[in-house]
Nucleic acid binder design. Structure first.
Lengths: 238, 238
DNA sequence: TCTTTTTACTTGTAAATACAAGTTAAATAA
DNA sequence: TTATTTAACTTGTATTTACAAGTAAAAAGA
């Protein structure tokens, strides 16, 4: 893990504003302080402030409008967990539970893995875990995760119950998901999957295979996710 | 439609480089000319060049590496058409055919539309079309599109056979898709869908409902897409 | 020959400045 | 009062300058 000795100014402002948006200090539709105001508030010049705002806009936290200002968006782009939208009404995060089916363990990669692996990844194995995520006690996601084993101290000992994997990676290891690729399929539920998701066998299930890039060169996070989309839809932004 | 009288310099450079990448003049893995070289070549200063490169990077055309340069990416981020990846091997675009099931017509919006509509949208109706897309003569996508009717001259007369809707919007109307949201579901094929996609009834089908934002304020493009994912997966970047 | 250091290149960060262009509300004129 | 103009904001575009930091190859040393 390479930690830069100095964090750029625009990055600091980005983090502050991002936090304020996530914590609800700025809410959906609010105007951020103008660029000149931010310059004064944080002692930066406008190009630096603009770089922070531009990054926020790219990450989907704000929209910029010439002549008006920077408006806080309704939702950041989902890259970590998938969000769900009910067919009847919107659902908050409060009813989401995470059940650990298999605690994180260090194992060699499976043979014929869903994505090609680099030599370095192959040598060092992966951290493997299985989780079941329930919404209102209904199982929605069956999530199999593989994390490249690039020196993440004590990761196998961490508590993942009701916490986002990506939150932990970000807060404890400064690992951030920068993007990735995924494959989607509608498949009939296997007997295993139908048992976990409490569905009849052969009912349609959404299957996602994802490879996620991180800010650490060479470190990727992989997921194989089976979704029960009978009651809820998978919601995403792009 | 508001067409700016002057196109910014950084935008011109963006378009040139984008075109070169799409046409294969720069190929995957190639290094673009350095920022200073681009400055000389196109008579701009470095911040201007950097703005163009930054936009290209955000759109997924290049990756930037400090100390090395700007490297052409394997694929641009898909936001328009969905790309597919075969389970056995990669597939080029050459076998993709588009069949018009229903030519574009101007109609009022359906009742209880899949996304909430603005008042302006509701008043002006929508351009409606249905298309079937085949890969190696196998039907893969059944695509229902709705375009807000905001003065797109002669759109109902255009030929959409084997051309991307988004290509036409971009080239003829300067309409570009900036992002959007989508809902995903795995559903059993209805009798209609199974007939179009040549599947057995109740076989799993991937259903996407998308709302796409454009660079024109107030103009959105909506799609309801049914995918046969038996042989191919839907591939996407994020 | 092989290793280390230097050098020349690359992109990254940052400041100071200027004007263009879109938006909004206040001031003005009818 | 109503419509128009103006002014004061906002973000957008662009130049110039400077140094930091990462990369790779050439040069120097062992």
């Amino acid at each position: 893990m390479v930690i830069p000795r100095t964090i750029p100014q625009y990055r600091k402002l980005y983090e502050v504003l991002r936090k304020h948006i996530l914590e609800g200090i700025y809410r959906e539709g609010d105007l951020l302080p103008s660029e000149n105001e931010l310059c004064q508030l944080y002692g930066m010049t406008r190009p630096t402030v603009r770089q922070a705002l531009s990054t926020l806009a790219n990450d989907g936290f704000i929209r910029k409008h010439q002549g008006k200002g920077s408006i806080v968006n309704n939702l950041p782009r989902d890259i970590g967990i998938l969000s769900v939208s009910g067919t009847t009404s919107a659902v908050g995060d409060r009813n989401l539970k995470t059940l650990i089916i298999r605690k994180p363990v260090l194992i060699p990669w499976p043979e014929r893995f869903m994505f090609p692996l680099s030599e370095l990844e192959n040598e060092s194995g992966c951290i493997y875990m299985e989780r079941l995520r329930l919404l209102d006690d209904v199982p929605i996601f069956y999530d199999i995760s593989y994390i490249g084993n690039i020196n993440l101290p004590r990761i196998t000992a961490r508590q993942f119950e009701n916490r986002s994997l990506f939150q932990i990676l970000r807060d404890h290891y400064r690992v951030e998901i920068k993007g990735g690729e995924q494959r989607l399929k509608a498949i009939p539920a296997s007997s295993d999957i139908s048992r976990f998701l409490k569905l009849k066998k052969n009912q349609p299930v959404l299957h996602l295979e994802r490879k996620m890039e991180t800010n650490i060169p060479g470190l990727f996070v992989y997921s194989s996710i089976f979704c029960n989309t009978e009651k809820y839809s998978i919601f995403g932004r792009f």
